[in-house]
């Protein structure tokens, strides 16, 4: 494991570069195929509305996958992630237009956990259309 960020160079409060991730219906169809999650709420508007959703929504696991890219791009080694958890608080609603939706992710180092293991806790914030879509979103990362 070779993170490019050194434990000694970060402190509680260090911000990671924020990123935005676009999501369209095509993105969701592709994710459904790659992940094997073919729940129709992620691609069938009629079905989604019948079960009380405003429209087709993104897979929660897709949002979880995008959010951690802020961490893995920062460390340079995705294998540096030793723990990652989220709560799915609000769905990412994906309209059937050219724009789709956008997931905005920011993150900062919340605490340095272990000087020996060189691990830090990173807290993530993910929003879409002004709504927080992930809660308790935290990763533990081993730095260089």
């Amino acid at each position: 494991m070779t993170a490019k960020i050194s434990y000694d160079d970060v402190e509680a409060g260090t911000e990671l570069p924020a990123q935005t991730f676009p999501v369209t219906r095509a993105t969701l169809v592709r994710y459904a195929g790659a992940s094997g999650d073919f729940n129709p709420i992620h691609w069938n508007e009629k079905f989604a509305k019948e079960v009380g959703l405003p429209d087709v929504i993104a897979h929660g696991m897709f949002t979880m996958a995008e959010a951690v890219r802020v961490v893995t791009d920062w460390t340079g080694d995705p294998g540096a992630v030793v723990e990652y958890g989220v709560r799915f608080t609000k769905p990412v609603v994906v309209p059937n237009d050219d724009e789709g939706a956008v997931i905005e992710v920011s993150a900062k180092v919340a605490a340095k956990l272990d000087d020996q293991a060189r691990t830090v806790r990173v807290d993530l914030t993910a929003t879409s259309a002004g709504q927080k879509v992930l809660g308790m979103s935290r990763a533990v990362v081993r730095l260089a």
């Binding site: 592709r30 890219r69 340079g76 995705p78 294998g79």
Partner: peptide
């Protein structure tokens, strides 16, 4: 590709080995 992540460690064995995998 489905999550749009171009990190080489996912597709390039050399790049993954350079990171110790």
């Amino acid at each position: 590709e489905a999550i749009g992540d171009p990190a080489p460690a996912y597709t390039d064995a050399e790049a993954a080995r350079a990171l110790g995998h």
